[in-house]
């Protein structure tokens, strides 16, 4: 499927090259933005510059992977409206398996590279040693975040089975969550903390593993093992959204021709 997608793209050779050029320009601007951001923020609530670079890198790379696998779900209302979803449902394949590979976009690798670079540098400057625990802590955050972002895309898509317009609700959480994840949870107001710990657990899966990785004292009164609960929390979150999606498909109304 991915192969087909690239092949399809290749058939517009000129626009393809232009698009690639576009990726590089955008990435360049992004990097400049990070630099200026950090110039004006030396440290936040006991978190150093490089610790925040790590948060940024973690968020961007997880988002990039989530987008590479599930971004097409953002276009669900369009897919429903132009009848493509009808076509999906008459094939012997699960709709997600059919649709998700279409998310593949080369330009997302720019974001991924940027995220990986940012976390790599921060590890280097923070002298984080390469131990099993540290790798596990990083992976806990990373994979849990990917699962949560994909779940949010899925929630967004499932919502379009009921109403074409309200799909922005979950988008707000996804991209709001990305912005939020760039800074430690402790700087936010109480209600924001509660929201991102228990309802949209982006904060949960970033904050606890990262705090332990950087040996922070303030864990908001949570036990240390919360860090390793992250993957379970993420999977539970996905489970709930999955049920919502299944209910949505049964409720699917198609379009009047």
């Amino acid at each position: 499927m991915i192969e087909a997608k690239i092949k399809g793209k290749m058939s517009y050779q000129k626009s393809y090259i232009l698009e690639l050029l576009g990726y590089f320009v955008v990435t360049g601007i992004d990097f400049a933005a990070i630099y200026f951001l950090f110039e004006s923020f030396p440290a936040v609530k006991g978190w150093s510059l490089w610790e925040i670079v790590y948060l940024y890198g973690l968020g961007s790379s997880a988002l990039a992977i989530a987008q590479l696998s599930g971004e097409v779900l953002e276009d669900m209302s369009l897919i429903i409206r132009n009848g493509e979803f009808d076509q999906v449902l008459i094939k012997p394949i699960s709709p997600l398996l059919f649709l998700m590979p279409q998310s593949f976009r080369l330009d997302r690798f720019a974001r991924l590279a940027q995220g990986v670079l940012a976390s790599g540098f921060s590890f280097y400057y923070l002298n984080i040693i390469f131990s099993w625990t540290n790798v596990a802590l990083f992976l806990c955050s990373f994979f849990s975040l990917i699962i949560i972002f994909i779940s949010l895309f899925l929630a967004n898509a499932a919502t379009s089975f009921w109403t074409i317009q309200s799909s922005e609700v979950f988008n707000a959480f996804t991209y709001g969550g990305v912005e939020m994840s760039k800074f430690p949870l402790t700087i936010y107001k109480r209600w924001m903390q509660v929201l991102f710990l228990f309802f949209i657990p982006i904060g949960f899966v970033i904050f606890f593993p990262t705090s332990i990785l950087f040996e922070k004292e303030n864990l908001l009164n949570f036990p240390k093992f919360s860090a390793f609960l992250s993957p379970f929390i993420a999977i539970a979150f996905f489970g709930v959204i999955w049920v919502y999606w299944r209910v949505g498909i049964r409720h699917y109304q198609s379009t009047g021709s």
């Binding site: 009848g83 493509e84 009808d86 076509q87």
Partner: peptide, 13 residues
């Protein structure tokens, strides 16, 4: 299944 006003072929392929 063929829906006369839709396509099941990939547009760019």
């Amino acid at each position: 299944v063929v829906f006369g006003q839709r396509t099941q072929l990939w547009w760019d392929l």
